[in-house]
Simulated assay, not measured.
Amino acid sequence: MNQKIFFAGTGNMGGAILRGLLNAKVDPKSIFFFDPSDAAAAAVSALGCVRVKNFAEGVKKADITFLCVKPQIFKLVATEWKNAVKALKGTKTFVSIMAGVARKNLVEVLGAKNQVLRVMPNLPLTVGKGTVALATDGVNEATLKAAEEIFGNIGVTCRVAESLMDAVTGLSGSAPAYVFEFIEGLTRGGVKAGLTRDVALKLALGTIEGSVELVKQSGKSPSDLCAMVCSPAGTTIAGVDALEEGAFRSSLIKAVVAGTERSKELGK
């Protein structure tokens, strides 16, 4: 990859993407960034990346700009960004990770002549195991492939229509919290059954990791795999029955839908 990349913001998500590029052996001198925090900037500069004094300088130097500020900051910086982009010659590519900020609003600021891609990453991206959805609306194939190449260093990618980004937020964007709750529930169950918390957590994590890998490699559906574990009148079917009494799957469905609806509200 010989493109120059600019990060407007290097918080958890922006920093994870940036570090993923470095792990993929991208030259740090080809990565520019702006962060108003001297402490945060010092940590990124220590990696060899180049700090710029403002958005205008960074976007001018780069081929691809990652917009990694918090969504509520967008309205505060929109005028500055618009003026900076107006001064540019040629076209640029922008990738926004700002949840709830529609592409049409980004295009109003960044200009219709530029490639503007909206993506939705999730928290596990910070450990190189995230998922990233790319909204395909109004974006050419070259931009999509470039984004997939970048994000492929730190997770898995999928393409969706922008109209489905709220659903992505409700599922992969929010689901890490549901998984953490699941892990905690299994751990507490183990403790209640007599295990120490350390042992219960270790067993829960190992079981989840192995189960995920089995779904990936087996080619079987989660329902088929569940049936394989449930021996007639055995311990597992007794546990599954207890989950059904608590509307386990229904609760997860409701959680994803609730997150989706909330994302739509925030987008307004």
Score class of each variant (00 low, 15 high):
residue 228 M to N: 13
residue 256 V to P: 00
residue 240 V to W: 09
residue 54 N to Y: 04
residue 18 L to A: 09
residue 186 L to K: 12
residue 153 N to T: 11
residue 233 A to V: 07
residue 167 A to Q: 04
residue 227 A to G: 11
residue 27 D to A: 14
residue 260 T to A: 14
residue 198 D to Y: 02
residue 65 T to K: 02
residue 106 L to M: 10
residue 204 A to E: 02
residue 183 I to Y: 09
residue 151 F to K: 05
residue 224 D to M: 15
residue 228 M to W: 00
residue 192 K to Y: 08
residue 256 V to Y: 06
residue 39 A to T: 15
residue 264 K to W: 00
residue 210 G to E: 04
residue 95 V to K: 10
residue 21 L to W: 02
residue 123 L to S: 07
residue 251 S to F: 05
residue 209 E to C: 08
residue 30 S to D: 14
residue 15 G to I: 02
residue 21 L to D: 05
residue 62 A to T: 00
residue 47 L to Q: 14
residue 116 V to L: 12
residue 115 Q to I: 04
residue 43 A to S: 15
residue 129 K to L: 11
residue 113 K to Y: 00
residue 94 F to A: 04
residue 104 K to T: 13
residue 232 P to W: 08
residue 119 V to P: 02
residue 146 A to P: 10
residue 26 V to R: 14
residue 100 G to L: 05
residue 11 G to H: 13
residue 98 M to G: 06
residue 136 T to W: 01
residue 104 K to Y: 05
residue 40 A to E: 13
residue 137 D to N: 12
residue 127 V to G: 01
residue 77 V to E: 11
residue 220 K to R: 14
residue 222 P to C: 13
residue 80 E to I: 00
residue 79 T to F: 12
residue 69 V to P: 04
residue 96 S to A: 10
residue 62 A to E: 06
residue 136 T to G: 01
residue 172 S to V: 10
residue 16 A to Y: 09
residue 27 D to Y: 07
residue 78 A to W: 06
residue 97 I to S: 01
residue 13 M to E: 08
residue 211 S to N: 06
residue 227 A to N: 15
residue 35 D to R: 00
residue 19 R to W: 12
residue 216 K to P: 08
residue 256 V to G: 01
residue 235 T to P: 04
residue 10 T to Y: 13
residue 145 K to L: 15
residue 236 T to C: 04
residue 200 A to W: 10
residue 223 S to F: 14
residue 30 S to G: 06
residue 133 A to T: 07
residue 62 A to Y: 10
residue 186 L to V: 14
residue 36 P to R: 08
residue 226 C to F: 09
residue 245 E to F: 09
residue 120 M to Y: 01
residue 258 A to P: 05
residue 10 T to S: 10
residue 210 G to R: 00
residue 245 E to G: 15
residue 7 F to Y: 04
residue 46 A to N: 15
residue 266 L to K: 03
residue 47 L to H: 06
residue 112 A to P: 04
residue 22 L to V: 14
residue 159 R to E: 10
residue 249 R to M: 10
residue 83 N to P: 04
residue 100 G to D: 07
residue 48 G to H: 08
residue 159 R to G: 05
residue 162 E to W: 03
residue 111 G to T: 09
residue 66 F to R: 05
residue 158 C to E: 11
residue 132 V to F: 01
residue 47 L to D: 12
residue 126 T to R: 01
residue 217 Q to D: 06
residue 138 G to H: 10
residue 151 F to R: 03
residue 169 T to P: 02
residue 42 A to G: 11
residue 238 A to K: 07
residue 241 D to E: 14
residue 136 T to Y: 03
residue 192 K to I: 12
residue 75 K to F: 05
residue 128 G to E: 13
residue 53 K to W: 03
residue 201 L to V: 06
residue 20 G to C: 05
residue 8 A to S: 14
residue 88 L to W: 11
residue 207 T to K: 05
residue 229 V to R: 02
residue 69 V to T: 08
